[in-house]
Amino acid sequence: MSQEIFEIVKQMNLDNLEVQIALQCAPLISGLRFSNLFNVNNEQADYLISLMNEMHISWKILFRGKEKLTMLLYKKDILENYFSDIRVKNILKNSGYEKNIVDEEDISGLIDTFADRYCCYMQTKKYFPHEMGLFLGYPVEDVEGYLKNNGENSLYTGYWKVYEDVAAKSSLFKRFEKAKEQIIWFLAQGVSIKNLENIAL
Rank of each mutant, 00 (worst) to 15 (best):
P139I: 00
Y156S: 02
D103W: 00
N149K: 09
I107G: 00
F63N: 11
K99V: 02
K148I: 01
N100L: 14
Q44L: 15
D112Q: 13
L155Q: 12
D116N: 13
W59R: 13
F83W: 06
E181H: 03
F6A: 13
K66W: 04
Y156P: 01
K89C: 03
Y47D: 10
R117G: 03
N41E: 15
V166W: 10
Y156G: 08
L37I: 11
E67T: 14
M122S: 04
S108F: 13
I78N: 02
R64S: 12
I111W: 04
T157W: 10
Q123E: 14
W160C: 08
H56E: 15
L155V: 10
L14P: 05
L23E: 03
Q3R: 12
V88W: 02
K178M: 14
Y121G: 01
D15Q: 14
D15A: 09
V143C: 07
V143T: 06
L73C: 11
I193H: 01
T113M: 12
N39F: 08
M122F: 06
E98P: 01
S35G: 06
F6P: 01
I86D: 06
K89S: 06
G96L: 11
N41Q: 14
I91M: 04
S171R: 13
E67Q: 14
I111H: 03
I21A: 08
K161N: 01
N41M: 12
L73V: 09
E54F: 04
I193S: 02
M132P: 03
R64L: 14
G151D: 00
L14A: 12
F34I: 01
I193G: 01
E177L: 10
M122W: 08
F186C: 05
A179M: 06
P27C: 09
Y146N: 03
K76N: 05
M52R: 05
Y97N: 06
G133M: 02
N42V: 05
S154C: 15
G151T: 03
Y118Q: 02
T157V: 11
K60W: 06
W59L: 10
S84E: 14
K169G: 06
L187M: 04
I78A: 08
Q123M: 13
K93D: 06
E98K: 10
Y121W: 11
R33E: 02
M132T: 07
E7R: 00
Y47E: 12
M71G: 00
D15Y: 07
T70K: 05
Q3K: 12
M1D: 15
Y121R: 11
Q24S: 12
E4A: 11
V162M: 03
S84G: 08
N90G: 12
V191E: 14
S95F: 12
K93Q: 09
Q44G: 03
C120L: 09
W59M: 07
I91P: 00
V88I: 13
S108M: 15
I8H: 04
F173I: 10
I29L: 09
F6E: 12
A179R: 01
M55L: 03
E67G: 11
D116S: 13
N198Y: 11
